[in-house]
């Protein structure tokens, strides 16, 4: 096996891994304000992709569908927050885990019945003929995924680290009540984070659909790997997910080649359980000192 082919596989795997990173980043956004994540995030990816496909079928241009899809994703994020998360957070319970799973199940079933169970192609104006860059072949489509993911994540990270709003995110996550006493509306902050997370899920759906096609199960494998990425990187490390996502993407392409395509999912899962054993707060997560 020539090294160049291995490199080629690793790189296209890593580019795919950025999609995992983007979905994982959606978990981090909500975790940052409320220590909760949407277990039905994959369904948001899928439903937003279907919605965007429907708009494209109606004849709208891709560049109009993109923002519409993001808005739709944000709206779904708000639905999840209202129906699944808010009450549990107010009661300081972990009921949101079950409720977001339930909402995901509902979205899945609705999508199955509204759009059918078949996989459908997703048209895009970005060409998919491969071009030769620095000795490996990549497609503009793959590159667009990378650019889109990094740009959006960079923008949101900037917002979180440099603005007062970002600090308010953190404050609400540390202590909801104390945040309220500063005049920060915990409710609105959490809503905003869920809306952002929904938009990020929609972006992931729109970017990845031309590669994977659109179908009810399109996101179930993706989201499982995003879970691994988020936990391995740590739920509070924005740039950790990028590294872990790319690493995992490369690893599983190689694993499916060397071990067998059925084992494609395995590295992520093994990596997850191993990472938990070694460093429960994630490789890039903040290690907490236990205080009493």
């Amino acid at each position: 096996m020539p090294a160049s082919i291995v490199a080629q596989m690793a790189i296209s795997g890593a580019l795919m891994g950025l999609v995992y990173a983007l979905i994982a980043y959606g978990f981090q956004l909500t975790y940052a304000t409320s220590k909760s994540i949407n277990f039905g995030q994959g369904e948001l990816v899928m439903v937003s992709a279907f919605f965007s496909l429907t708009l494209l079928d109606l004849g709208l241009s891709y560049w109009l569908v993109l923002p519409a899809g993001l808005l739709f994703g944000a709206a779904l994020g708000l639905v999840v927050e209202r129906a699944g998360v808010r009450l549990a957070l107010e009661q300081k319970s972990e009921g949101w885990i079950l409720l977001t799973i339930i909402l995901g199940l509902f979205f899945f079933s609705a999508a199955e019945n509204i759009w059918g169970r078949d996989d459908r192609p997703f048209p895009t104006p970005i060409p998919s003929d491969s071009i030769h860059v620095l000795g490996v072949d990549v497609t503009p489509l793959e590159l667009s995924v990378a650019v889109g993911v990094l740009a959006v994540m960079g923008l949101i990270e900037l917002l979180k680290r440099r603005t007062l709003l970002g600090k308010a995110f953190e404050a609400v996550s540390v202590d909801r009540d104390a945040g309220e006493l500063m005049g920060i509306s915990a409710k609105r902050t959490v809503m905003l984070s869920y809306a952002l997370s929904g938009a990020v899920a929609a972006l992931a759906g729109i970017l990845v659909s031309p590669i994977t096609t659109v179908g009810p199960t399109m996101a179930s494998a993706l989201v499982l790997k995003a879970f691994s990425v988020a936990v391995v990187a740590g739920l509070d490390s924005g740039f950790g997910v990028v590294l872990v996502g790319m690493f995992l993407g490369a690893l599983e392409t190689l694993a499916s080649f060397y071990v067998g395509s059925g084992w494609r999912e395995a590295p992520g899962l093994v990596l997850l359980i191993l990472a938990l054993a070694v460093r429960p707060t994630g490789v890039f997560g903040k290690a907490a000192i236990r205080k009493v």
């Binding site: 917002l159 709003l165 600090k167 953190e170 404050a171 104390a178 500063m182 920060i184």
Partner: peptide, 23 residues
């Protein structure tokens, strides 16, 4: 109930959250 993972100055800035620009 200080915000332990933020620095002292950020804690103070958040105290004035209601009347400061967000961005």
């Amino acid at each position: 109930k200080v915000f332990g993972t933020l620095c002292v100055e950020d804690n103070l800035l958040l105290g004035a959250y209601g009347r400061l620009p967000r961005f």
